[in-house]
Structure formats: C-alpha cells, structure tokens
C-alpha cells in the first residue's frame, strides 16, 4: 500500500514537472514575442514624428529634422542588385555541380567542408576581405561594386545550400525520363531539374538577400561613407550604347550604415532618425522573410510528387 502511494506520488511529481516545463516554454515564447513587439513598438514610437514622405525623399543633413534616407535606400537597392548578380549565378552553379555532377572525391569533401565553414565565418572578416582584396588590391575603392562583391561572397554559402536542398527534393524519375528521351545531362538539368527546383532555390536566394540587406559590419569595414548627398549615376545613358555601368563605381551609402551612424551619435536629435531608419530596414527584411515563408508554404502545397 505504501509502495503504491509512493508510486502515485512519483507519477504525480513527473506530471507536475512536465506541466512546469510547458509553462516555462510558453512563458519563454511569450517573452520572445514580447521582445519583438517591444522592439517594434519602441521603434515606431520614437520614429513616428520622422515617418513623413520627405524623410524618404531627402539626402543626409547635419540637421536631424532635415536628414533623410534617399541615398541610403537607393544605395541598398543598388547593393542588392550587385550582390544578387554575384551570388545567384555562382551559388546556383556550385549547388548544381555538387548535386548533379561531382563524384565522391577528396576535392568534393573539401568543397563541402569549406562551404560549411564559410557559413560560420564572422561577417566582419568578409569586410576585411573586401577591404584588402577588392578595395585596395584590385583598386575598386569604397564603391558599390566592392560592397556588392563582398556581400555576394558572404551569402554564397546560403544560396549553395538552398540550391542543393531544392535539387535533392526533385525525384529521380524526372531525370530518368529525361535521359530516356535522349536528353544530355545539361539538358536534363536546365530543362527539368532546375525548373522543378526553382521555388526552393528562389526561397534560398530571398533569405540570402534578406541577410545581406541588414549586414552592417562588412560594409562599414570596407570604408563606406555615411554622408552622401547625391544618387548614383543612372544606368541608362542618352548616348550609345545607352547603358552605363558608372553606378557600380559610385561611392554609396546604405540603410544599415545610416542606422549605425545615427544610433552612435551622442546627439539626442538623431534618435528619431535612427529609429525610423531601423524601422525601414526591419520592415524590408521582414517583408523578404515573409515572401520566402509564403513561397515555401505554396511550394509544399503544390508539390506533385
């Protein structure tokens, strides 16, 4: 009888512990949600007076009330297009090679370990790579090109890993059918495998770019300036060949740099500006992450195999 009572007490205790754990886990989740909400609300509150159209349409200024983020968000768009131009072709090609072509060899293992490692290299170290290699050695200076190349290499592992995972989900039957009607390996990859994997690859690209858009340390390190009162030259030119790549060489600023600069000023006037720039940046990354989640959700629903 006492044995039975003791057993009952033990079971009771185990159940209580479990309830306790669940309570802690829920509190933790609530806390995290509260942190995010608190961050968002405090930003919104501080930023509110500055969230006017002219904040987005004016250049930097020494007076906080007149300073805007025009050059910063244009710079961020310019940076993202260069970053994508670097990371997407290289990353997708590397992913295709590792999944569809590479044989099991030392070199392949080396490449794989290397990619895993690159994903863990602190972003500021990429900044020094950009500073030493692109800005100084190749003489690109503190241009949008230097920053775009640096960020492109930074998100390369993300794109490679996403591409590989997406390709791996394509069933072999599709490849075999393609070979059976006489397609070569590349024809199979280009016409069957890649189209079948494109939603997964696109998700990875968006996640990579949303990481790049908020990266501050590497572009501060390559020497990007904060005070820019002009836009990069237009990519369309009135003369032949009507396309100009001067914008690639132009000095630039970007949203994270401007946020950092305003946040680290002792002058309290710039607090509202810092909050408004931070809010803009957060909304941009949240929108990109949301798009990626939605794509993944749609992908899972529409998958036919």
């Amino acid at each position: 009888m006492t044995d039975r009572a003791r057993l009952k007490a033990r079971i009771q205790r185990a159940k209580q512990l479990e309830r306790g754990f669940l309570l802690v886990a829920w509190l933790l989740l609530a806390l995290l949600a509260a942190v995010f909400a608190g961050l968002f609300v405090s930003m919104l509150q501080t930023a509110w007076p500055r969230l006017q159209p002219d904040f987005f349409l004016s250049f930097a200024s020494r007076r906080a009330a007149q300073a805007g983020i025009l050059a910063a968000w244009v710079g961020t768009l310019v940076l993202m297009s260069i970053t994508a131009a670097v990371a997407v072709p290289l990353g997708v090609a590397a992913g295709v090679y590792l999944e569809e072509y590479a044989r099991q060899s030392r070199l392949t293992t080396l490449i794989e370990v290397n990619i895993a490692n690159l994903a863990g290299v602190p972003s500021i170290v990429y900044g020094l790579l950009g500073l030493g290699l692109f800005a100084r050695l190749l003489g690109f200076g503190a241009s949008a090109l230097t920053a775009g190349l640096t960020l492109g290499l930074l998100i390369l592992p993300i794109v490679v890993v996403a591409t590989r995972e997406a390709i791996r989900t394509v069933p072999n039957a599709i490849r075999e059918a393609s070979y059976a009607v006489g397609a070569t390996r590349w024809q199979t990859v280009w016409q069957q495998t890649l189209p079948a994997a494109r939603a997964g690859i696109l998700t990875g690209i968006i996640i990579g770019l949303s990481r790049a858009i908020g990266e501050t340390a590497p572009i501060v390190t390559i020497g990007a300036v904060t005070f820019i009162a002009f836009l990069p030259p237009s990519p369309l030119s009135p003369n032949f060949p009507f396309i100009s790549f001067d914008w690639v060489w132009s000095p630039f600023t970007a949203l994270p740099i401007v946020t950092f600069d305003w946040t680290s000023r002792p002058n309290a006037d710039f607090r509202a500006n810092a909050a408004a720039a931070a809010l803009t940046l957060t909304l941009m990354t949240a929108a990109m992450n949301g798009a990626a989640s939605w794509l993944r959700y749609r992908l899972r629903r529409r998958q036919r195999w």
């Binding site: 990354t285 949240a286 992450n289």
Partner: peptide, 12 residues
C-alpha cells in the same frame, strides 16, 4: 521573425 532582424537594429 527574430532571426531576421538585422543586427544593427538589435544594437539600437
């Protein structure tokens, strides 16, 4: 959402 917040915003 938390993982997507840029670190400079966390710094702020």
């Amino acid at each position: 959402l938390l993982a997507g917040v840029p670190t400079v915003v966390f710094g702020y």
